[in-house]
Design a protein around this nucleic acid. Sequence first.
RNA 1: GGAGGUUUGGCUGAGUUGGUCGAAAGCACCGGUUUUGAAAACCGGCGAGGGUAACACCUCCCAGGGUUCGAAUCCCUGAGCCUCCA
Length: 414
Amino acid sequence: MIDLKLLQKDFEGVKKALLRRGVDEKLIEELKIKNEKLKEAKMAYETLQAAQNAMSKEFGIYKREGKDISELKKRVDENKRKIADALEVQRQRQEELEKLAMSIPNLPDPDVPDGEDEEDNVEIKKVLEPREFDFTPKEHWELAEQNRWIDFERGVKIASSRFSVVYDMGARLERALINFMLDYNRKRGFIEVSVPHIVNRRALEGTGQLPKFEEDLYKIENQELFLIPTAEVPLTNLFSDEILQEEMLPLKMTGFTACFRKEAGAAGRDTRGIIRQHQFPKVELVCITKPEESDKVFDEMVETASGILTELGLPHRLVQLCTGDLGFSAAKTVDLEVWLPGQNTYREISSVSNTRDFQARRAKIRYKDGKKNTLVHTLNGSSLAVGRTMVAIMENYQNEDGSITIPKALEPYM
RNA sequence: GGAGGUUUGGCUGAGUUGGUCGAAAGCACCGGUUUUGAAAACCGGCGAGGGUAACACCUCCCAGGGUUCGAAUCCCUGAGCCUCCA
């Protein structure tokens, strides 16, 4: 959630930032008005409540002294009715404000480039040169089928479209990658955490997937529980509603989970292969930091994800997302895109975001900053999407006969 | 699935004949005295959110309802944890 105090204090500044990422101007103004209306209602209610409290105290004194209370009681009863009305007004306005505020995305950092969509993202740098092929490189689904690593039909048979089954060397490669990635992250100071794959509504609100993106989540029937779309949700919410000790920060975590997404709105995109599945394995990084150190940690996370690709010998590039392509909770995001020779293009394989205090405010994650309690910054990034890494290995390490060489870095894991 | 217990501030833990309880005490933490320095000792401060220029004031003792002029304390519903039984 954005900072409503800041909105009140620097309306023009906040408006400008939100307009950059395409938020409707009317919504921003409405947010401000609703906030002011709530304040009014609160004041009215609190004044009445204060009177009530005072009278109640008096009441006790009267009784003790044996005075007549009938007159006082009349006043109190009357006030009580007013309070009930005032409270109802306040409740309504609170609800309205919250509904709106929860649907407003984060403010982009000032240095995020303006832009409409991914076309306007800015390449930061390329790492490793794509290999020259003396034959026409195949796409991963061809290689996967030829090597009998991935079975697309049977995944569909037992579940639905966008599910697949991985066999033999493919399955072993997947497992090797997960271990390799977790170990790599651990060596860089991220502690390994194993979390539930199902979370409640509160957690999803904390990280910003709800209330806005419910249609993309798998919900457990008749329960307020959902399959996680990313490990970011359980990892970040681990410390919701807590006041952390300063020494605990920065908290750097890594975890492996499956991720579940309905991919609503992605109909027709990436239908072949395993680029876009309803269930996919991913190793995630989540950091909780003091505000002043989040930029540094952000860079570490990008380097870590990039480092894994480099170790695996996979050419990739870093791309800074423009305002139009930023995720809902992110103030700043750098994507890692891996080179896919079969598709002859770079494809997203990791996304590292700094949400600043946006999630921390929703999830109430704070730390003791000397005397004060201050909202932390939360960051998340994949390191990496395992399925897409397999795709990249297949395509980059393919031989002319369709066989695939296992990257050196993975040899100890296979 | 059944019976009982429990849920209080960063932690431990008092507080159930309803009022002066946002809550004793201890630990932790912060400031000071003392010390070459540290420890110990002593003095003072110290829950959270909102509100204010600062006060005042409002809300919060698992969550949600209710009774009452007034609830951490009474009633109902739900959740977590623990124990016993099936």
